[in-house]
Design a protein around this nucleic acid. Structure first.
Lengths: 225, 225
DNA sequence: TACAAAATATGATATTTGTCATACATTTTT
DNA sequence: AAAAATGTATGACAAATATCATATTTTGTA
C-alpha cells in the first residue's frame, strides 16, 4: 500500500488540508487503478460512490448530446479530483470521464471522504472553493459557446491547451487530441474543425504535422480570432 | 425590522437550516431593498461582500460577452439566494444581476453568513448542494449551447419559462422578457429570435399578442424541436 | 393627445456552419 | 506486407444564422 503523503494530488487538491492521521486512514481504504488511453473511469449515469484522485495522465469530462455528439466539458489533469459534485449531490455522474492518456488514479470511497467532510472544516471549504471555481468556469464557457464563433473558440481552445498542458521539445502541443475530440471541445462538426485548422495552417498561424499541432505565434493568433 | 422566520427565502433556500437564534441574528443585520424593474442588484466585477435573499420578483444573471451582447446565464426566482459563489470564492461578481420585475431583496453581510457557515454544518452542506446543482445546470446548459440549434434552444427555453414561472389566466407566459432578453437567453441575435418566434406563431405552436407569448400545445412544440 | 423613442417585425443578403461524398493518409490487424 | 479500419482532408452544396436596412407597432412622456 502506497502512502498518500507525498502524492501530487495531496499537494494540489483539496486534500492538502488533511493531516497525517487522515492521510493514513485514506491510504488504507484507497484503491489504485491504471486506466489505458481511451478507457472510461466512469460513465454518465453511473453511480460512483466516491471520488477519484488523478495521479497521472489527463482525462476528458464529456456529455453525450441528443444529436449524438460528445461535448467535452472539461479536461482534468494530474493533481485534480474527479466526481466531487456527484458525491455531494448524491447523484449518478452527470458526465463521463475518459482517459486521453494512460492514467493512474486512486479511488476513495464516499464514506471516507464524507468523514473528512464533517471532521475537517478546511477540507470541506477547499472542496467548496473548487466547485465554485468550476461553476465560474462553466458559466464563462457557456457564454463563449453561446456568443463566439467556431473560429474564435478554436483559437482560444488551442491557446488554452498550450498554456494548460504545455509543449513538447519541438513546440507542438503536448496533449494529443483527435480532430473529433478537438471538435467536441469547441462544439462543432469534426469537418468544420479540420477545415478551420487547415485555414490556420495556410495562414501561417499554426503548423500541422500529422497529429501534431504547433502554434507558431500565439499573440498573432489571439489577435486574429 | 422584519423577522426572517416566515420569509419565503427561509423556507426554500439553504437558510432553512438556520435555527431561531440564528434567524434573529440575521434579522438584525440584514438590509432590505426594493429594486425596480430594469435596475441592477449588482454588476459584473463588483465586490458584493455578502449575499442577497430574493423575497419577491425575478432577476436575470448575465454576462457581457466580447461581442457586446449580454448572455443570460440563469434566472433567479423568489426564495433563492444570490451571490453565494462570489462570497465563497472571495471574488468580485462574475455575473450581473438585473431585475426583470420589481423586486424585494434582503442583503446579509458576508461576516454574518460566514459565521453560519462555520457554526452550522447543515447550512454549509445546503449551500454546497445548491452550488453543485448550479454546476450541473451550467454544464448541461453549456452542452445545449454547443450542440443544439437556435430553434431547439428557443423551444426549450419557452417550455422552461412556462414550467418554471407559470402562466397568466389567459395562458400566456407569466414572465415578461423582451425579445432581446429572450435572444440573450438562447444565445442568438435578436432578429433571429424574433424571426423564429414568428415562424412558431405561423406554424400554430405559439401565439404572439403584443409582448405576450402563449404556448398553444406544449407536446407538439417539444416534438417539433 | 401627440410626439419621440424604443421595441418588434420583416426583407434582402452575406456569412458561417453543417452535411454528404470522396480522396488520401495513417494505424491496426491479419 | 497486404488488407481493413480508422482518422484526416477537401470539395460541393445545403441549411442555419447574422447583419443591415427599413417598416411597423408599442411605449413612454412632454
Amino acid at each position: 500500500m502506497e502512502k498518500c503523503e507525498q502524492c501530487i494530488v495531496r499537494q494540489f487538491s483539496s486534500l492538502k488540508a488533511l493531516n497525517k492521521e487522515e492521510l493514513l486512514k485514506m491510504a488504507e481504504c484507497k484503491t489504485s487503478y491504471t486506466i489505458k488511453k481511451g478507457e472510461p473511469i466512469f460513465e454518465e449515469g453511473e453511480v460512483t460512490n466516491g471520488i477519484y484522485c488523478v495521479k497521472d495522465g489527463v482525462c476528458k469530462l464529456s456529455k453525450l448530446s441528443d444529436n449524438g455528439k460528445d461535448q467535452i466539458v472539461k479536461l482534468v489533469k494530474p493533481g485534480e479530483l474527479l466526481g466531487q459534485r456527484s458525491m455531494i449531490s448524491d447523484e449518478p455522474a452527470n458526465l463521463s470521464a475518459v482517459a486521453l492518456e494512460d492514467m493512474e488514479v486512486c479511488f476513495i470511497p464516499k464514506s471516507e471522504v464524507m468523514q473528512f467532510f464533517t471532521d475537517n472544516n478546511q477540507f470541506s471549504m477547499n472542496v467548496m472553493r473548487t466547485i465554485c471555481d468550476d461553476l465560474k468556469d462553466a458559466d464563462d464557457h457557456m457564454v463563449n459557446m453561446a456568443q463566439k464563433t467556431v473560429r474564435q473558440r478554436l483559437v482560444e481552445t488551442l491557446i488554452y491547451l498550450e498554456e494548460t498542458f504545455g509543449k513538447n521539445d519541438d513546440d507542438s502541443l503536448r496533449i494529443q487530441l483527435s480532430r473529433e475530440e478537438l471538435a467536441g471541445m469547441i462544439g462543432t462538426a469534426t469537418e468544420s474543425c479540420i477545415r478551420l485548422l487547415s485555414e490556420l495552417n495556410k495562414s501561417g498561424f499554426v503548423e500541422l504535422t500529422g497529429k501534431k499541432i504547433t502554434i507558431l505565434d500565439k499573440n498573432k493568433l489571439k489577435r486574429f480570432a
